[in-house]
């Protein structure tokens, strides 16, 4: 039993060490040539544009359901005009970043782990190295850059469309005037909230993509291994999204409020 625990601890430490090693190497590679610009643009398209539909739909329906639930409650106090305030604060500070993070973790994290995992088990990554290409520069750096820069953009769009979703429900279901809803939305937002909503997704994007790359690059065991890596990437990055969200929120509350 003690042996098993020791092995588990050793494996966990090794994973963390390898993750830190990959992240450090990727960080160094961003600053020095060669830089594969075409791959970076491709990843911006794959991660940013490719995730747009799922993120917009998630944001829209979240805003709508938030309006429905909060509207019903606020209506009991005659405060249905305050729905906008609640939606903007929730979407911008918390739900926008976290939901976008979870959507991207499900779509992009799994995709990266599966793609890199397949390349590992079919020797394509060894072939890259044999052809003189550093796989971290070619495969990891473009994905990390795309994750860090596209997730914040997706978050802004998710927050925006969530407010639109809330507006649709508030106007159609609760018969609140559009002007009242939108002025309530603006009233509910503070500069600190906007900063928090904008800064969080940089960390979440980095976390999701770097975990996907790390898990993918450590894949062994053929197609079964690829399946395991894909599952692990989704689970680990989803949990990491929530954990990183908590930690960044904690730090930002200390710094901003």
């Amino acid at each position: 039993m003690t042996g098993r625990v020791q092995d588990w601890v050793k494996d966990a430490i090794l994973e963390v060490q390898e993750y830190v090693h990959l992240v450090t190497k990727a960080g160094r590679s961003v600053l020095t040539p060669p830089i594969y610009y075409r791959d970076i643009i491709e990843q911006f398209d794959a991660i940013g544009i490719g995730s747009l539909t799922v993120v917009l739909l998630a944001g829209l329906f979240t805003g709508m359901v938030l309006a429905l639930n909060s509207g019903l409650t606020l209506d009991q106090f005659g405060a249905r005009s305050m729905v906008g305030r609640l939606i903007s604060a929730s979407m911008v500070k918390e739900l926008g970043p976290v939901l976008t993070g979870l959507m991207v973790a499900g779509r992009v994290g799994s995709g990266i782990a599966a793609e890199l995992g397949s390349m590992m088990v079919t020797d394509q990554i060894a072939a890259l190295r044999a052809l003189g290409t550093d796989p971290v520069r070619k495969l990891v750096v473009p994905r990390v850059l795309a994750g860090v820069l596209m997730v914040p953009l997706l978050t802004v769009l998710a927050g925006g469309i969530g407010m639109v979703g809330g507006w649709i429900v508030t106007v159609l279901q609760f018969h609140v005037a559009s002007s009242i809803y939108w002025s309530s939305v603006v009233q509910g937002l503070y500069v600190q909230d906007v900063w928090m909503g904008l800064i969080k997704p940089f960390f979440l994007g980095f976390t999701i993509v770097s975990i996907g790359c790390h898990v993918g690059m450590r894949t062994t065991g053929g197609t079964q291994g690829v399946g395991k890596s894909t599952k692990l990437a989704v689970v680990a990055s989803s949990v990491a999204v929530i954990a990183v969200d908590f930690m960044v929120t904690k730090v930002m509350i200390v710094l901003l409020y």
Binding site: T122, D123, Q124, A126, A127, R129, A130, L131, G132, D134
Partner: peptide, 23 residues
């Protein structure tokens, strides 16, 4: 180091099992 090995690999070619072509 890996960076130096890249230079040495300039004179090497490898045919992997199953080809390892980029899909």
């Amino acid at each position: 180091a890996e960076e130096e090995l890249m230079r040495v690999r300039g004179d090497l070619g490898m045919v992997f099992q199953e080809g390892a072509l980029f899909d």
